[in-house]
Computed example of a mutant assay.
Amino acid sequence: MKKIFLVALFFIGLSAAQAQELKWYTDVKEAIKVSKKEKKPLLLFFTGSDWCGWCIRLQNEVLKTPEFTKWAKESVVLVELDYPRRAPQSDEIKKQNNELQQAFGVQGYPTVYFANATVNKEGKVNFEGLGSTGYVAGGPTAWLAVADPFVKNAALKEKTKKSKKA
């Protein structure tokens, strides 16, 4: 009886762990492809993952919670744009992240931008900003209350575009 219980507990834990995992893209062009396919806006998380106290706090209090996980899976494509001091990064990722930091005018961390993006024929990315936020005290409920309207506005804009084309 104990073995059956332990095996059942193992599988429940395994499925719960898999359900909690979110896909965070580091390549913005790959994330844009997924965004277009899934018809979801991008959540661009500008962070100093290994040195920024407020970034770490946002991760622990919001981004790693079941509430955020559920919302994110339904609502956005996640992009982490990291500016670490100790963790190694490829030159390509550093270049991409620095260009995006300048394009969005990010001056402090954490900064979270919501955007739709398109890639033109020349491969140039154009972003349509939907809003931004940072750390919000009060856990996932408070943070999502700030973030969710940006996503809902994105869906409304998409619906309006489609009705104008028809």
Rank of each mutant, 00 (worst) to 15 (best):
K64M: 13
W54E: 10
E38Y: 00
A19P: 11
G123N: 02
Y25G: 04
R85C: 09
K121V: 07
Q59T: 15
W24G: 11
P149G: 02
Y135R: 08
Y83M: 08
P88A: 08
L14M: 12
R57Y: 01
E74I: 01
E92N: 14
F10H: 09
Q59W: 12
Y109G: 07
E30L: 09
K94G: 07
K2W: 06
S35D: 07
P41Y: 03
D148P: 02
E158V: 01
T111V: 04
C55Q: 03
T111L: 01
P149K: 02
A87C: 00
V79E: 04
K121P: 00
K164F: 12
C55S: 12
L100D: 02
L22V: 04
I4V: 15
A8K: 12
E99K: 03
V146C: 05
D91P: 02
V34P: 00
P66G: 04
K152V: 12
P140A: 13
E122H: 00
S163Q: 15
E92W: 13
A103R: 09
S90D: 14
K3T: 13
F68S: 05
L43M: 14
V28Y: 05
A31H: 02
K165T: 14
G134Y: 08
C52S: 15
A8S: 15
T141E: 15
L63V: 08
W54A: 13
